[in-house]
């Protein structure tokens, strides 16, 4: 198979676009397309300061690489979750982020959960019995809180995450299976800023997971190959596998699913089912971040409990 642009040997074929490219044209194509998506969804401008949430994985590091290649002012935020899983998962992830940032002279902020909050995520999840034996619930809630606080406190205009189309399609698939109308009303490439909540953007939301991995490989970006040890068996993985089965037989299924949803949403399909509490946010009396119900936010409540229970065990 040959590159459509130069007729040299192709290294990737994107069947949904009927487009095959060589390494050189592919590593140009990804930033070009990213810039197109940034403009199409009005994510941010040249003057904006961007905080990229980096996990050490292929998507977030590739995103940071692309944004800096495009000339944006983008700093990184790594959250050390304290997950070992027998492979030193968090240590490995942090190391990849640090190496990436150092090699490019980029600013990486590191937030260590155990140091700052008193316990690593798995221990915290165990102590509050939240999430049915999996730390993912405490982890997700904590990461969202920490990322927002870091972006707001640091004066950033946007928080960028490396979500790819497979992530978005799997989330959409789950929300559709459960007819989770509040979530369906909210999903998209941009989550607008509200009082105390930074604007969130997903510049890679139209790239297949395979494409971000290919970019990372071709750009020689070292990333943590093993995914989080707690993600195995997760529902989102099952949804991705199911969608890939369809994609294998009918190229473009995932992209069409996501873009059709965005088009329907753009035409007001979920307007009436938008989060009814969206306009009623209250500042948490402890941390000041917005929360939907008056009183302490879930993050402060959870971590207060973690510290109380840890103290009892000492």
């Amino acid at each position: 198979m040959k590159c459509r642009k130069c007729q040299r040997k192709a290294v990737i074929n994107m069947r949904q676009h009927k487009l095959s490219l060589c390494a050189e044209h592919y590593t140009d194509w990804i930033p070009d397309q990213t810039q197109r998506f940034i403009e199409k969804y009005a994510m941010f401008g040249r003057q904006d300061r961007i905080l990229v949430a980096v996990s050490g994985g292929k998507d977030s590091l590739a995103l940071w690489d692309v944004l800096t290649k495009l000339g944006y002012e983008a700093d990184g935020l790594y959250i050390g979750l304290g997950i070992d899983g027998g492979i030193g998962y968090s240590d490995q992830s942090k190391s990849f982020c640090e190496i990436f940032a150092a090699a490019r002279g980029l600013n990486l902020q590191v937030y260590d959960v155990a140091d700052r909050l008193g316990a690593p995520i798995p221990l915290a999840a165990d102590s509050v019995h939240r999430g049915r034996g999996r730390p993912c619930s405490v982890c997700g809630m904590s990461r969202r809180h920490i990322m927002n606080a870091a972006a707001v406190d640091g004066g950033y205009d946007v928080l960028a995450t490396g979500h790819n189309l497979d992530d978005e399609a799997a989330t959409l698939f789950g929300n559709t299976l459960h007819w989770s109308l509040e979530h369906l009303a909210r999903q998209g490439p941009v989550l607008e800023a509200r009082t105390g909540l930074v604007r969130k953007v997903k510049p890679f939301c139209r790239f297949y997971e395979r494409e971000t991995a290919a970019y990372a490989l071709l750009r020689s970006i070292d990333y943590v190959y093993d995914e989080c040890p707690h993600s195995e068996g997760a529902k989102s993985i099952y949804y991705k596998q199911t969608l890939n089965k369809m994609e294998d037989e009918r190229p473009g299924t995932k992209l069409h699913f996501y873009l059709s949803y965005l088009a329907a949403k753009g035409q007001g399909a979920f307007a009436e089912t938008a989060d009814p509490g969206a306009e009623r946010l209250h500042p948490c009396p402890t941390c000041g971040q917005p929360t939907t119900a008056p009183g302490e936010c879930a993050f402060c409540r959870t971590w207060d409990q973690v510290r109380e229970r840890s103290a009892l065990l000492l």
Partner: peptide
């Protein structure tokens, strides 16, 4: 090279 998130979940 496995690209799907989630450890050894590449065989479907």
């Amino acid at each position: 090279v496995a690209v799907i998130s989630g450890g050894a979940a590449s065989r479907i």
